[in-house]
């Protein structure tokens, strides 16, 4: 409880700093304060356009993320199984990782047009992250347990459940958290470049054209909240993996013991 109060206090402090700086700047084009941003947000929330834009961007980035995760994980398993395949794939994904997002976006814009640009961008940003972390997780698996599974002829399903997934989960936790943050930022940036109508990126761009700094910050808040919410939801999902400690019941039990 005290921890939460402390955290809230710190956040409040920075919001106050933000408000003070905006009062000092006293120019609604250069900077608007949190109060003004909330007002803009309230004005936006009641419009249908607001929700349509969110929906447009959300499901494209989300679908790109899901497809890339699935593909990245499958390719990593395949690459770990057939080493020659892995040797071909690894440099490709390493290259993919180091190409600047902006270059990709322009190329994708030429290939596929602006409509589904954020889907492809999200896909390409997430794919190498999940491939890399899954390969690393598989390579770090306990060799002695794998040998045990081989000697006992444990079927693949059980091997996956009892040995591979528990070994992968710490790698996946950091990879998914990174990938989710990246796909939102890159996806929206792609939309700012590609300008598909009714997207969050398009709304950001309009805010720039009309010098609506309040709208810009309001949309920024929306993006942060969305990405934060999705990341939390996904972290919960990952706790369902086998071998993860089910935290809540345990801490409940301890409290019960003390009482």
């Amino acid at each position: 409880m005290r921890q939460h109060l402390k955290k809230a206090g710190i956040i409040l402090f920075w919001l106050l700093v933000w408000q003070l700086v905006s009062l000092l700047v006293h120019n609604s084009v250069m900077l608007v304060g949190p109060v003004e941003t909330i007002k803009c947000l309230c004005r936006l929330v009641v419009t249908a356009d607001f929700w349509l834009s969110i929906w447009y961007t959300f499901w494209r980035i989300g679908l790109g993320f899901l497809c890339a995760s699935l593909l990245g994980i499958l390719l990593a398993f395949a690459g770990a199984k057939k080493l020659i395949l892995g040797e071909f794939l690894s440099p490709f994904f390493a290259a993919l990782k180091s190409v600047p997002v902006a270059s990709f976006v322009v190329l994708l814009l030429i290939w596929f047009g602006s409509k589904n640009l954020s889907f492809f961008t999200s896909l390409i940003v997430v794919l190498p992250i999940l491939y890399g972390s899954t390969r690393e997780g598989l390579a770090n698996n306990d060799k002695k347990l794998l040998e045990m599974a081989q000697v006992f002829r444990i079927p693949f399903g059980a091997k996956l459940h009892y040995i591979l997934l528990p070994g992968l989960s710490p790698f996946w936790k950091s990879a998914f958290s990174l990938a989710l943050g990246m796909c939102w930022k890159a996806g929206v940036a792609a939309e700012v470049i590609g300008q598909p109508l009714q997207s969050i990126g398009n709304r950001l761009y309009q805010a720039k054209i009309y010098l609506e700094t309040g709208d810009l910050l309001a949309w920024t808040v929306v993006i942060i909240l969305l990405s934060f919410g999705v990341e939390k939801a996904f972290a919960r999902l990952l706790r369902l993996l086998p071998g993860e400690e089910k935290k809540e019941p345990d801490s409940m039990k301890e409290k019960g013991d003390v009482a």
Partner: peptide, 24 residues
Amino acid sequence: GVVFQEDRLCEPFSAVENVAMVSK
């Protein structure tokens, strides 16, 4: 049926799961 020099158990799982996993 092997007892390895090390235990080689799947750490996060219960004893029952560790035994039941070896055969369908």
